[in-house]
Amino acid sequence: MIEFDIEKTLQSVGRSRDSFALQMQTKLDGGAFVALFGRSGSGKTTLLRILAGLTKPDAGRIVVNGEVWFDAQNKIDLPPQRRSIGFMFQDYALFPNLSVRDNVGYALGPHDKAWLNELLAMTGLEDLRQRFPDSLSGGQKQRVALVRAIARKPQLLLLDEPLSALDIDMRVQLQEQLIHLQQRLGFTALMVSHDLGEVFKLAQHVLRLEHGKLAQSGTPAQVFLSARHAGKLNVRAQVLDIRREDVINVLSLLIGAEIVDVIASDDEVRNLKPGDLVTISAKAFSPLIFR
């Protein structure tokens, strides 16, 4: 069980120099996979850093499995070294001077050799063990960073957009690996993610942050499939082209990586121009589903 109740004044990034308060109180079940969802600048990364002990909150308390990690009133603030955490940084933060094997084994002692070898084998890093970070692809770097973060068998795994910048195949592969590792090691995971598919796939629980406050908390379905969209298929799309054909308008839309033509009325296209972002909504009864 992970409980925290923290407060921290943050400077917002960007042109407006106003500050806002990160203020959150919640409990996470031990062994759960939790996603942190929200716009950039809503305090997600800061929350991870506070839990890791890399950023000090102004006030509050953090208790992990009965151990107090931070308590502003009693002046308790465990340094990151003494918290049972794994932290996967957005830019991986691999040590350039160490091989893949030494990066993963960095946190391990000389007695953990068997575990290190098992870990490398389990995550398919064995062939890369002698390679250095500079010679790895983005996907490989992310895998090494993930494995390094869990090598110490932490109680709490903190992931800052772990699988961004991966193509879809690699993403799925790493997601499977993450699920497998969590089942095996039983850590609690807190993951920042912008990818809804990923959140649905990995997380049992979602915390949605808005401007430093907890806006919603629940299962992915509870948070994202709210009543007003029930029964409708909503898709964000970008307008590529608007053509007039006979009596109808044809809109070419970019949805993800696919281009789709839809028919639109005069009213609908009146204020549209190529480049606009639109939401298209369709009835979701009995669609055809393929694999």
Binding site: G53, L54, F89, Y106
Partner: peptide
């Protein structure tokens, strides 16, 4: 050097 290197090492339990 990226500040991350120092922080990553701290989260890995090293002084």
């Amino acid at each position: 050097l990226p500040v991350n290197l120092l922080e990553a090492s701290r989260t890995l339990g090293k002084s």
